[in-house]
Design a protein around this nucleic acid. Structure first.
Lengths: 257, 257
DNA sequence: CCGCTGAAAATGTACGCACATTTAAGCTAG
DNA sequence: CTAGCTTAAATGTGCGTACATTTTCAGCGG
């Protein structure tokens, strides 16, 4: 094993550097099979076991690894169940879990200006925005009508992207290197308008979720989104406890209306 | 300072005993002015500073105390604002925050049996249940129709409680000593039936949230609840980030329809 | 009386050691 | 070849030490 070096000039605590380096290596998949033991890390990084345990303790507190007596630490199953995206993510992962395939019809993808939306993104009213409107399907049935506005200065490279099968966040991450780390959303129960009902092919007596959402990346507003989700087949599901707080979980999806 | 004793027979780790004792003393209000320093605890409990730090580290991770270099630890302000209750709690606290007063009309409070609900509470189908049905108001307008079932074996003392102004959880905590620590809920968007619409005084074109929820206390199912919330004036609001996960926040309430 | 300085105190970091307890692996006997 | 035992290895607990860094406070001088 290669001896790894840490910065001992006192800029950052050794255990913190070690923790960060382990997180990095862990995310790279290096430890998918086996996680190194404490003594191995002592050897590799040339620090005391005390320091190693301090770093591992933090990783354990974050739920990245699990450790037991006499047994080597292992990478926690479902490493990072971080709820990345909120209610929408929960809904779409519910569909995924139910075995239905998802795809979208792109109804619009262009650059336009909208003063109201721009102000919600902390932009000048005249700022150009990339606008993406999709009708999202779960299986053969429409699931949601999704409209997103992003600053064109940031998102213009996505103009030629194909959004019929890939997610916006995927494209944002891979092509622009922007990852949402914070957001806010409002969820309302509404009755869709006749026009919306026609697009979503809802039965006449169905309600819907209306979700407004602002996503930010490093404190900068990156997206404003409005999604209308059919309420007759999809539900939000959540679990909460003292330790874990409030967590959205994949819900059951009714295949047939 | 009195020397305090810990059990050194190996039943439980010293740091855990210390942690639990400190939590106990902390909750009793003993440390409201000043929290003892590490060295003081070393003296009091006759353990090493390492052990004391291990216990304090846990308290700090739980957010009970805050510590800084060179400064004595202090009891954390707002000790535990844990999101206790999920979507419903969020909705009702939104109303509270908007300045509207809340009260309820108790439509039913009795003991009855319901096989379906009982099975959801992991009880025999014939088990008696305490049933509470309330119409909850925000200001002068109905907000939600709330129906709760609890095991009668547990909740029977609540039969003579007055639920027009106090919350169920309050009564559960003070009169029975049960506090919910875990729960699961489904949130659906629905169109209320004409009967429901009449009770809630909804406009004809309004949708509603239908929330089903099971609450547990120490792994034992304690309540099953169904709440129908008017969707024309109330929304769910949430914030999410990498650090804090998904947190429901009080939303704005529209006073006028 | 105010402000500055320096000492004392407190926590943070880092090292070392020893032993307990549990798991995993290897080895032996049947 | 398998079952059971023994041994090695790994983590958990607990103690000690030393020094760094920061805050607090007392004392001193202006």
């Amino acid at each position: 094993m290669i001896q790894r070096r840490l910065d001992r000039t006192g800029g950052q605590p050794l255990w913190k550097q070690l923790q960060q380096d382990l997180v990095r290596r862990l995310r790279s998949g290096e430890f998918d099979d086996t996680f190194p033991g404490e003594l191995a890390l002592v050897e590799d990084y040339q620090v005391s076991r005390h320091t190693v345990r301090q770093a591992l303790g933090k990783l354990r507190a974050d739920g990245l690894i699990v450790a037991e007596r006499g047994r080597q630490p292992r990478v926690a199953t479902t490493p990072e169940i971080r709820q990345p995206m909120g209610a929408l993510y929960s809904l779409f992962s519910s569909v995924e879990a139910s075995g239905l395939t998802q795809h979208s019809i792109v109804r619009a993808l262009d650059i336009r200006a909208d003063g109201v939306i721009a102000s919600r993104l902390d932009l000048e009213a005249s700022s150009p925005l990339l606008y993406l409107e999709r009708l999202r399907f779960a299986g053969d049935e429409p699931l949601a009508l999704d409209r997103v506005w992003l600053p064109a200065s940031l998102a213009e490279p996505l103009l030629d992207a194909d959004f019929t099968h890939t997610s916006l966040y995927n494209e944002l991450a891979t092509r622009i290197g922007v990852r949402l780390d914070h957001g806010r959303e409002d969820i309302r129960a509404v009755v869709p308008t006749p026009a919306e009902r026609a697009v979503l092919r809802c039965p006449p007596e169905a309600a819907a979720f209306s979700i407004n959402r602002q996503g930010t990346s490093q404190s900068r507003p990156v997206e404003w989104r409005h999604t209308l989700v059919r309420g007759d087949r999809f539900a939000l599901s959540a679990e909460f406890s003292e330790n874990l707080g409030y967590r959205l979980t994949p819900a059951a999806v009714q295949h047939q209306a």
